[in-house]
Design a protein around this nucleic acid. Sequence first.
DNA 1: CTCAATGCAAACCATTTGCATGCAT
DNA 2: ATGCATGCAAATGGTTTGCATTGAG
Lengths: 146, 146
Amino acid sequence: MSSKGRQASVDFQSQLQKRNLKYTHVREVILNEVMGLKVHFDADGLFEILKGKGHRIARDTVYRTIPVLLECGVIQKSVGAGKGEYFERVDNRGHHDHMVCIRCGKVIEFRSDEIESYQSKVCADYGFELSFHDHKLFGYCAGCRN
Amino acid sequence: MSSKGRQASVDFQSQLQKRNLKYTHVREVILNEVMGLKVHFDADGLFEILKGKGHRIARDTVYRTIPVLLECGVIQKSVGAGKGEYFERVDNRGHHDHMVCIRCGKVIEFRSDEIESYQSKVCADYGFELSFHDHKLFGYCAGCRN
DNA sequence: CTCAATGCAAACCATTTGCATGCAT
DNA sequence: ATGCATGCAAATGGTTTGCATTGAG
């Protein structure tokens, strides 16, 4: 296991403790798999990935674990091809958000330090402790606008 | 009908034309009801509201109309108590976004002209024509954080 | 006229829930 | 010892889809 992975485990454990949740074997396995994932996934897809790697974890458990991963900052909401919600691992190098073309479906990832910074400011103004966020822009990409 | 309502109709019609969609009686009725709505609603809820006012519009039509309303800038994504997606009328006075407490469920509406402005800048950078956006912050409200 | 929009009804399927057992603390 | 976590399986119900009909441009 890389030091990065180990670090993530430690963070996850402390995040769980903070919320009086247990660090179980199943959660450890899911954490490790998710940390290595570079693709966007939905709950069902994550279950299939885990199954494909030989882990015997029930589908419902995966569904129940995703909110925990979100709250602990391990994953963030993302976008994907299916109709449900998609997620992706939180990259240490900073959040990115998404633009989605409502004509061709193209997804553009963007980063804006300014937006992140004002987002933090707004949270501070309200005494709100941010766990994760979801920021998507829908419209027409350069190729699809008239 | 107020001048505001009339204005919205005109905008809606031109938005529909731009996309080669038809301005039907059903869409007119839905538009008018939505423009008067101050609450957050989901697809099913909107259907019930329409039914309650005596309109005979099929549930599926409401589901099929919501994406159209989104694209035409009549409604925006919002938050609500149920598990599905919620929407709300776009207020002429500007967008607002939402913070959601993942402990007590409290919803705080916030506005940030700075975020809106940098959001526009990002879109411009990518040649992206923004139709609507979805920006939610999840975490602990002032009363729920430790 | 032509093609999108609508209604009806059935199908779909991702997600949730109840309950008994297992396991972390 | 206590209470959350997990697996199993069934239920749920919000949402989608196919098709015939209607209606807008």
